[in-house]
Amino acid sequence: MEDPMPFGTALHDRVRDEHPDLDHLVRVATRSGTRIRRRRHAIATAVTASGVAAVAIGVAMLGGSDLRSGGEPDVAVQPTAPASHPVDQPPRTRAERAHARALRALQDAPVYVDSPDWRCDQPLDEKFICTHGAASVVVVWRPAETWADYQDPAKAGPETFISDVHGQFFATVNAGPDTTHAQVVEVGEALIWAE
């Protein structure tokens, strides 16, 4: 009988013998997923804290009105967020906001990009992606003991930015589509380290 969908059959035939290492997949996904959870939790905590602080400020301002009318504020008039919280001294410039973002990301990765021009995804499996308009790069952190291998252009590719070793790691930066080598270097020079 003639196959009514030969292309579909060919696709199935092509991948029929492909079997991933499922135990490895479980291990890596659980580890990376846990990092995502922690990161979300940290962000949620920060957002909640800033919300509390904002409410406290609002209440304080209302209290101020009361005071003008002779009343006494009956709640704390100071924000109750932790002293280190950005609400106390919110980052004002793009560079300051980028720096604060990079410092937060260093909880999940040994390296991150501190640049107001590049927006980076959350680190996953020893790598993360950064974009700037149409340009994009991928940053990968690697074990320090493999650094020497990457000095060979045949291994790393001539356009790859290779950082110095920082503690146990170094990083490589590679260009995505529509990305110049100068942009790769720009990101490489904006790397900050958790050590």
Binding site: L25, V28, A29, S32, I36
Partner: peptide
Amino acid sequence: AEDLTQTTYAKVYASW
């Protein structure tokens, strides 16, 4: 494909 599958399951686990 391995990267993509791992990324997918990591996201799934984060919201498991």
